[in-house]
Write a protein that binds this DNA or RNA. Structure first.
Lengths: 192, 192, 192, 192
DNA sequence: ATTTAACCGAGACGGTACGTCGCGTCTTCAA
DNA sequence: TTGAAGACGCGACGTACCGTCTCGGTTAAAT
């Protein structure tokens, strides 16, 4: 007798987890090196030691490969955590300075713009864009500050987060670098 | 003999304004129809009845063609003016609602995302992204409100504009549609 | 104890005759429909409702599948018998006219050329090419005529047959159709 | 004023004769080395230092490339001339022995079968198959013998040639090697 | 009765080649 | 000198089959 809820497992060889991991790893590595629009399925396949068809079998486009790599944390691992020192304004300022420093670095600018390009063309990536930039941590941090009474109870959390992440993005697209007080000004604008 | 003060005009035929216009028009039309990344130089040349070389002679990339089309107003003609009724909060809310309505329309969403893609890869387009969305008018409007004493004198104008435009962009990338009160919430968040 | 002379039959399930027949049938059908070089192992497997491995287990190549189909009479069933009326010249002429009619039919020409392609690449098929065209019956018929004294005793039988079958093949390859007297001219050339 | 009958020459760069020659040369070389069905468009392009598209622009299939190479004499250069000593039977015998020796050589057998494969799938190649094997020279030689009264005036020349070439082909397909007297027997069968 | 070897279906996998699209450069001819 | 036309080398696309390899399940001889 089979377990309740067990999937009957269709016949034939199972999907190779090895290949899947190699593809995501290769995609991340090439994305970081060459950028989203120089990223090719052929390149990923070659780097991963995998047949092109194996990619096409499981992903409809390069965008979806990148999206999954993003989800798995292969891209941007460990970047952009939001500190939680107890002073929410200081925490947000620190996060924003960290992110701005990253975005303004000429070596990273193409990377962040590639992320935006990828987001613009692929819904999955778009759906997680601010997550990759730390957006969901940011939301949690601000919600905690509201809950603890540190900031105004009716603070529109989502709008604050959108404004912060959005400002970073729109400035990146216009190649406007942050000045030393940019982060602080934004935070004081948004958290009264 | 040439006129005094005239540009010395080297020999041969002058640049064809007809061809230039046809190219920008074709680019705009194809951009609107097929989106930025299905836009091709070959396609533009064919649509415009022009040789590829004529495009390559005057523009370094498809991005720069689109940028010029944007400048000429071939794309987004007449959209997104910021009203000036005297009530700056109402004006910004109206502008934001207008823009959100446009962005949230399923028929326009690919267009706006294509603009973002184009901006991400081409500095000229990026430099004018918020302008195309009404950003520069917005700046003027907020500055006027500061000057007239309608709002706080030390309002960080650029940050407000970046936050508004950026929020629209980041929401578009995440496919998050506006709710009826979104515009008002943003405006009240930013202009206290 | 096993029967004397019986093959010691190793363990496990026996080869499925059902699968074998389905494969040959599918191969014949696809050969007739699409021609030898559009014939694929995957196509045969799909058509036969069989796994690819089942084909690879028993045949080394698609050529050998076709060769076996030819042997089983799945291809060219009942075609090209040589009549035996007693008049060998009339019999050969009739056979040659029949074959020429078949070969010259625009619907069959691809089929016969596919047979030649298959023969050229696969020794087994080549070895039975003239058999499929009636060659072995032809040999028998000419040998009988020699034995009965109807034609010259030292007639080089094999050469006559090769010349007849070969002429049909080389004309098919050059797309040269037979004229009404072609068959008769050949027979009178070869049997004096 | 232009020459009468001169083609007006449409605009744009002319077809590159260099590329055309390189392609035919590469095709011939690879055909001889690897055989017709291991011949690939990609392989030809790589060997010729040419883009695939340049091949596809001018030829519809690999068969037509080979056909043109055959026409240009890149394949089989100088093979299989029919001698003209005055003794037509001796000449035909010599030609047939020469050809048989070539065909029976294990190193050449794949080549000749490749020619047959190519002929079977491509009408142009088929139309010139016997020419490549010396067929047209053979026709001339036999016609001359008829004209000079050396052989019977009503000899059916085309049938004789078809029988000879066809016999070589059908034997090659069945992998039947010639014996020392094969050539002589054929010639005496056909030329009484 | 159990074990075990071989069969069979399904189908994933690393590959090769396909035929097409678009790139950016170059050459030809007409204006 | 510009501009339309278009050939060229190049790189990538997404697809079709190749032949090999698991996988889960079945069949039948050997233990």
């Amino acid at each position: 007798m089979t377990e309740a809820g067990a999937v009957p497992r269709r016949r034939g060889a199972a999907r190779s987890e090895t290949a899947r991991r190699a593809i995501l790893k290769a995609a991340s590595s090439l994305f970081a090196t060459r950028g989203y629009d120089h990223l090719t399925i052929e390149g990923i396949a070659a780097e991963a030691g995998v047949a092109k068809q194996t990619i096409y079998r499981w992903w409809p486009s390069k965008g979806s490969v990148v999206a999954e790599a993003l989800l798995e944390g292969e891209l941007l691992p460990g970047h952009f955590e939001v500190p939680a020192t107890g002073d929410v304004r200081a925490d947000l300022t620190a996060w924003l300075e960290d992110l701005s420093r990253f975005v303004d670095d000429p070596g990273n600018a193409p990377f962040i713009r590639s992320l935006v390009t990828a987001a613009a063309e692929n819904a999955d990536i778009g759906a997680r864009l601010d997550e990759a930039l730390g957006g969901s941590e940011l939301t949690t941090r601000v919600e905690d500050a509201v809950a603890s009474g540190e900031i105004w109870a009716r603070t529109p959390v989502q709008e604050v987060v959108d404004a912060l992440v959005g400002a970073v993005v729109t400035r990146a697209l216009r190649r406007v670098p942050a000045t030393p007080d940019t982060a602080e000004r934004f935070v004081h604008l948004l958290l009264r």
